[in-house]
Design a protein around this nucleic acid. Structure first.
Lengths: 157, 157
DNA sequence: AGTTGACCTCAATATAACTTGAGGTTTTAA
DNA sequence: TTAAAACCTCAAGTTATATTGAGGTCAACT
């Protein structure tokens, strides 16, 4: 029985093992702990020990980050997981739905943005009178030529 | 003729005007200038003056940032604009194509990620033997239960 | 001509998300 | 049993992207 097997059957993982398995540095795990994204307890020698579900938590954190979600938001969402017991299939599933909705939103936002970029930057009209997009839906008080960004929506005027 | 009209017909804009029109702070324009994202010249009193196309540049910078593109990458792309003359419709259009491709890539990435999250986190199997997704496409050497993130692809094992 | 608002520079501060390093302890394994 | 590897804490450093403030100048209106 090798070291990692032993750790796994005992279900208390060392920080080095978790780092290796989850692909993050030990310092990152320390950092996440100070941010209350993960938890550990200590052995007699004051070393951290983790339950195996920390691996899933870290994977979820990384996936959420890849979606552009901040650690603070991630912490809030992870907080919806049960405190007293190991998360179940249903718990993770609920989380998944949450991320999924967020991703859908982002994708939609990106698509709108892409279309705007296509329409407005691509248009390249460079002046108010000749901009078909601007002339189609005119709602800016200021009629000078130029460009503005309103609420993350690109508008060239 | 009010102040902004005067500035526009003279085609040299003050930093305050550009800030107001583009929706960023004066300090941000200073900052962008140190990063070579925008340019200005100085009047007799050492104050910045801008050509009107700076408004479009700033709008493009903001739009690109909203896509998750870094200022460094934006600078590189903006560098493809002509140095010697004011960008034309064709110039901006080329830029647009560049962003659009990037956005398409990101959207695809997000969609794949969402599907993974749906499939893998949502699956919630919590163990190797029962994970249909893992069992379908098994390419990890390590067969212990847990979770890893490989190349931004979420994989639970 | 004088006051007020806009501008200037440069240094410091802010936030997120980590990383690095120093100095010391614990665990593991030959 | 002892040396190496892994761990500990705490402070400082890092990168990106700005923002704020101090101390001083310039421009615009009355």
């Amino acid at each position: 029985m090798d070291a990692s097997q032993k750790k796994l059957t005992e279900a208390n993982l060392t920080v080095g093992y978790v780092a290796k398995r989850s692909g993050v540095k030990v310092s990152t795990l320390h950092f996440y702990e100070t941010k209350h994204l993960i938890r550990s307890w200590r052995n007699n020698g004051n070393q951290r020990r983790y339950k195996p579900d920390v691996l899933r938590r870290v994977a979820v954190i990384k996936a959420a980050q890849a979606m552009g979600i901040t650690l603070d938001e991630i912490k809030n969402t992870l907080a919806t997981l049960p405190d007293n017991r190991t998360p179940t299939k249903q718990d993770w599933s609920a989380l998944s739905k949450h991320w999924q909705a967020q991703l859908d939103e982002q994708i939609t936002h990106m698509q709108r943005l892409r279309d705007r970029v296509d329409g407005c930057i691509g248009c390249g009209c460079l002046s108010l009178k000749s901009c078909p997009i601007y002339n189609k839906d005119d709602h800016l008080g200021d009629k000078e030529s130029g460009a503005v960004l309103l609420n993350s929506e690109l508008i060239l005027v």
